[in-house]
Design a protein around this nucleic acid. Structure first.
Lengths: 273, 273
DNA sequence: TGAATAGTGTCTGTGAGACAATATTAT
DNA sequence: ATAATATTGTCTCACAGACACTATTCA
């Protein structure tokens, strides 16, 4: 029979917190950015690539596989704080834009024990963190081929190529939401291929409905560069006049120019508001 | 010095899972629906209210306060499964539309011990579950007054009125995202006022960009009824012709009519695709 | 008959897609 | 001069907001 408590203080004093079997939680970070590729010739713009930061595991489980930067959440630490801590330890940067992505709670995610993972999506201007990268961390260019049924992702850091395929299943008729099932993956640890698929989808969806992209831009940029970033994330060409009309509300012209590019110089813009 | 392992199997055998202090996680459900109010006179339509299901706590902590239906996630149970289980135990219904909302991970959410909460947003046609409600559970009509700085929420189940105020702070310039800080609340347990604020915001944002609303509708409905649901969630009047144009793509006319309403009868529609 | 909702027609302004045209630089 | 990007102009089409109008029922 249950004891009757007269007050919350009295109840808490007696409370046995071992009643439920406990588990661990990690904060995992999808750090996205845009990398410069090569210049084909002196006239052309730099090619750009959508890219993500991965870390090579040096210990079991999944030794030598790649995974998202992440770490366990301390018992006296907020999940958000853990995410900030992990990100700072990989990049040596604070004040990076970050938002919670999703919490993955499958039972066998981690072979060691029950671990929940709360993932965060972070965006950064890659030029801000040259030379500050942690050991074992590496930027991978992201290429996505997607149709109604499958999403093919190729990650390439110049040395190593990681490919995985996510099968898409419509979860809900009413909202256009897909569940991703990883059907092929041999180089990514845990369920991180899945996490990456969810993150890429989320980012694509938010690009047009928010100003999120500016987190990946330097303070001054040309509209051409900005357009490249949109194109590389959305994986499609945009029409110049339309892009400029839409983006005009969010940017402001500065008096600076970018010259020396083998073609007409371009006004540098800045994020507005 | 760390021991060298030759294989993953060997590593796992030795792994001491008590290295990190563990914690508990709950799945909490925001179950939204639309309730019929009273008819002013025989000619008028039923008034409708946006509503949410709350449960009165019978034990400490927060005894006699209201909270979201929720429960601890079992060590061998997916978070999603726990959410489905909790929802079924409150409503006796399966196959309710549900999506993960957010994971709240503040350290002092629960005075007993460290508990993470993953919240889910669920939508249901309330008429499907008359008389199947669990004890202590009650539907509250939701009224929201919101401006740039604050969100005032009033919940009313006919007997009891719960009010809270959430102060909004812009988290990120680039995306229009707000953090909510609860500045007044005396009848809701845990951080559930906060969760409700986040859930209402999410629902409002998704109403126009998805077909989510149809999860709250019966199979057959008039366009007037559907419009009422949109209006009550968005908390604003919509223009009939515009609404009908937009909704036309998502609905299909049936041969059934709704009559006996003291005014012109209306064709019953159905969700399409 | 009248109050109420159901349902349609149409004007207008906004804004995106499409394409054409002009401008400017480094080599 | 030329290749490349920068930048602007403008036509069209889709579509949401606004308002007016007609249709139909039950007490």
């Amino acid at each position: 029979m249950e004891k009757e408590y007269k007050s919350e203080a009295e109840f808490l004093k007696d409370y046995d917190s071992s009643l439920f079997e406990k588990l661990s939680i990690t904060a995992d970070i999808l750090l996205f950015s845009v990398s410069d590729g090569t210049k084909e010739n002196y006239r052309k713009l730099n090619e750009k690539y959508f890219s993500i930061l991965l870390v090579k595991r040096t210990t079991y489980p999944f030794k030598d596989k790649w995974c998202l930067p992440g770490g366990f959440v301390g018992i006296e630490e907020t999940i958000d704080d853990a995410a900030v801590r992990v990100l700072a330890s990989e990049t040596n940067l604070h004040n990076i834009y970050m938002e919670q992505l999703y919490t993955f709670g499958d039972v066998k995610r981690d072979p060691r024990m029950r671990v929940i993972s709360t993932s965060y999506m972070a965006l950064v201007d890659k030029n801000k963190l040259l030379d500050t990268l942690a050991l074992n961390a590496s930027w991978f260019n992201v290429m996505v081929l997607e149709d109604e049924k499958e999403m093919h992702v190729t990650l390439d850091n110049g040395n190593e190529v990681i490919k995985f395929v996510a099968k898409k299943t419509l979860i809900s008729k009413t909202t256009e939401r897909y569940a991703y099932e990883i059907v092929s993956n041999d180089k990514l640890a845990f369920d991180h291929a899945h996490t990456i698929a969810v993150g890429i989808t989320r980012l694509k969806n938010k690009v047009n409905s928010s100003d999120i992209v500016f987190n990946m831009m330097p303070e001054y940029f040309t509209l051409g560069e900005l357009q490249q970033v949109y194109e590389v994330i959305l994986d499609k060409k945009l029409l110049d006049p339309a892009f400029r009309r839409i983006i005009a509300k969010k940017t402001e012209k500065t008096s600076k120019m970018k010259t020396g590019e083998g073609h007409r110089p371009s006004v540098l813009f800045r994020y507005k508001k």
